[in-house]
Amino acid sequence: MNAILTGGFADPSTQSAHAFRALLEAMARPGRILAVEGARPPAPLSVAAGVALLTLTDATTPLHLAGAADCEALRGWIGFHTGAPLVAAEQAQFAIGTWDALHPLGRFRIGEPSYPDRSATLIVEVDRLEPEGARLTGPGIETEARLSLPETAAFRANRALFPLGFDCILTCGARLAALPRSTIVEDA
């Protein structure tokens, strides 16, 4: 019970402001890795994933918990700190889980041709998050960036849907990076 009530932002307006700036920089500069702090969610969630949830979700944002993230402790924590309604992947505005657990990706909303913004944001928990590996180019990137991605094919397929598609926030410990649908991903 205690784990449910603790681990939120102690000073929500300031902490979420700092966290959002990290998320904004990350989404604006795909591949850029930023440190965040302030959330202590129950296992298996990372600090960074907790920060993203506290900063972006609330009772108005349907959330999907994938795989191991769909556990009692986390349901309670999310319910108490964000109030986000838990839903199936197809209805989710946000989804959280490991890359494998989020599959199949075709379940997630990619927006509508006239409203491409009505698409899911996937918070992907990864074991490694390093500026190496897959080559990223596109908006937000001056020449190229490198990022350790779980795979590249799915991101290439997602890019092919542009302006439709899902957007990803990759989280690892207390660090995060983002990969919007606009990024062109190539194998290392």
Partner: peptide, 21 residues
């Protein structure tokens, strides 16, 4: 208020993901 800021912040992230939209 925080809920309003979250709503705007979500819109900003989508705006960055779909440049010019």
């Amino acid at each position: 208020d925080e809920q309003t800021k979250r709503m705007i912040r979500r819109a900003l992230l989508k705006a960055l993901a779909i440049p010019g939209y």
